[in-house]
Design a protein around this nucleic acid. Structure first.
Lengths: 160, 160
DNA sequence: TGTTATTACGGCGCCCGTAAGGATT
DNA sequence: AATCCTTACGGGCGCCGTAATAACA
């Protein structure tokens, strides 16, 4: 009952958490997406702010706004995490986990029953898919298309 | 009696250690430069290898050679640490710690008394100067020059 | 024999999850 | 009332330094 492989919390994990917070829009949403608790996310954010010596985002009880420093930090964090993922991707080769976009073409009602289960299984199998950001785009049924591709501001959780 | 600001060992610290090992040429040299013990460096390297799932460098008792994977990892690590330092440099601004080379021109005997104390104070104040590598170059007294600039394979410690 | 890397061991500290508290809508 | 963030509190896991072991020059 610990960490779904962030493999020991650290500065990289802290920034991963920070990015998730910003993209999720709230600490609790980030906690849900990360499969951890709200206090943990709060503490990680505090730790990052403390280690950098500046305030990243001003948070009142029902709002959240990126500081100027926070915005710069976010940009840096994105590039740095990108470097990290490039590194692991190169070192582990493609032998480990699939990579790139996953596009699915399926009727709407079919998707409800037949798509969601394998999709959830897939995301449970490769949770890092979510760290790139993951969303589902609904398209008019005439096109019969559901698309899964990287984007921002998505809120996904993987039910147990 | 713990960590001269690597601020909680983590994946970034692991890679810093790895880079230092490669550049220093041996685990014990890296340990000396990092101001830590040989077992610590050994364990960190093992941890990094374990976390990546591959062997980074083959080490027998009196030799050391980068694996093919290790070479790729080293390159990636350099760029990633560069990104990290760019980030902290940008976020902390120039308000916090000075940056760049520090060159000092003093008579030799003068340096013994008047230079070392402020230098030690300086390094104690900004320990991260050491993480870029730090060495002192002795120059013939006719030139009356002592130089402090980044270089490799230096062994510095900051006495308490 | 001196230098190198690794394992053994006790201890301190960090991080986590649950639970309780405060604030705002 | 409901939701969100923070602090308090034990507990476990990880990392560290010292010391001991093993291999090579």
């Amino acid at each position: 009952m610990t960490n779904p492989d962030m493999s020991g919390m650290d500065r990289i994990g802290l920034m991963q958490t920070f990015v998730r917070i910003v993209e999720a829009g709230s600490l609790s949403a980030a906690a849900a997406q990360l499969g951890t608790s709200q206090p943990t996310v709060s503490r990680r954010l505090q730790a990052l702010e403390r280690s950098l010596g500046l305030e990243l985002l001003q948070r009142s009880t029902h709002a959240m706004k990126l500081t100027d420093d926070g915005a710069r930090c976010f940009a840096h964090a994105k590039t740095l995490l990108e470097s990290w993922q490039a590194m692991t991707a190169d070192l582990r080769g493609a032998k480990d986990a699939p990579e790139g976009h996953l596009r699915v073409l399926v009727p709407h009602a079919f998707g409800q029953d037949q798509l969601m289960a394998p999709l959830m299984a897939y995301l449970r199998r490769y949770p890092q898919s979510l760290s790139n950001g993951c969303c589902m785009i609904g398209v008019p049924i005439s096109l019969l298309r559901a698309s899964i591709a990287p984007c921002r501001s998505a809120r996904w959780t993987i039910p147990p």
